[in-house]
Amino acid sequence: MALRVGDKISNFKGKDANGNDFNIESIIGKKPIVIYFYPKDNTSICTAQACSFRDQYEEFTDLGAEVIGVSSDSVASHKDFAKEHQLPFILLSDSDKKIRTLFGVPSALFGLLPGRVTYVVDKKGVVQLIFNSIKGQNHIVKALESIKKLVS
C-alpha cells in the first residue's frame, strides 16, 4: 500500500553512507524532511539530482529541513558517491528494499528501474507532498516549494 498525502510515515531504520545506524525517529518531531528515492548512485540523472540537492542543501537547512536520499546501493557505494560529489546530506542504503516497500515507491520504465519519488514530510511525520518524476532535477524545485509552504 503506497503512502498518500496525509499519511503518517512509519518508523524505519537504515545504514548511512558511513555505515552508521540511522533511525527516522531521530528526526520526526524535530524538523520537516525531504526523503527522495532514486535508482542508482553514479548514474547521470541520479548524480545531477544529488548535486542539485547538494547545491541547495543550505536553503533546506536554513528552512529547518533535512534531506535524505535513499537507494538500494550498498553503504560502500554511498560512501564513495557522497565523497566524490561532496554530498552533505544523509544517504541511506536500502539494499533489502524495505524502506522503498514501506513507502510504496513504484518502479519506473516498465518495472525495470527503481522509481524516483520525493516525499516531503512535516515535522510530525505526515506526508505533505509526493512527487513522482523520472526527471531528477524537478524534484528539488517541488521539494523546496513544499518546505517553504510548511514553514511560512
Rank of each mutant, 00 (worst) to 15 (best):
F110T: 14
K135F: 09
L87T: 02
K98I: 10
F103C: 01
Y38F: 11
H78K: 04
F37E: 10
A108K: 09
A48E: 08
K97N: 07
Q137F: 05
F89E: 01
K135Q: 13
S72I: 05
T118E: 01
F60I: 10
D122S: 03
V105A: 04
A82Y: 06
S52K: 11
F89C: 02
L112T: 09
I134M: 05
V141C: 00
A76V: 05
S44H: 10
V34Q: 04
Y38K: 02
F110L: 10
D73K: 10
E58W: 04
P39L: 10
K97E: 13
S77W: 08
Q128M: 12
T47S: 13
V120T: 04
A65K: 11
K135E: 05
D122Y: 08
Q56R: 14
F60H: 09
D73W: 10
H85E: 13
A82N: 08
F103D: 00
F89N: 01
P114K: 01
A65P: 06
V70S: 09
T101N: 14
S72M: 07
D55A: 10
V34K: 03
V70M: 06
I130Q: 08
S71G: 09
V67R: 06
I35K: 03
R116D: 00
F81E: 00
S71H: 07
I90V: 04
S107G: 12
Q128V: 03
D41A: 14
I90D: 01
V127H: 07
S93P: 07
P114I: 00
I35S: 03
A65R: 14
L63W: 03
E58L: 11
P88C: 01
A65N: 15
L129M: 03
N42V: 12
L113V: 11
I45V: 08
R54D: 15
S77N: 09
G104P: 00
A76T: 08
K142P: 01
K124F: 07
K123G: 00
G115D: 00
V105N: 01
R100K: 12
D41H: 05
G136C: 08
T47K: 04
L113W: 13
I45L: 12
Q56I: 15
G115V: 09
P114F: 02
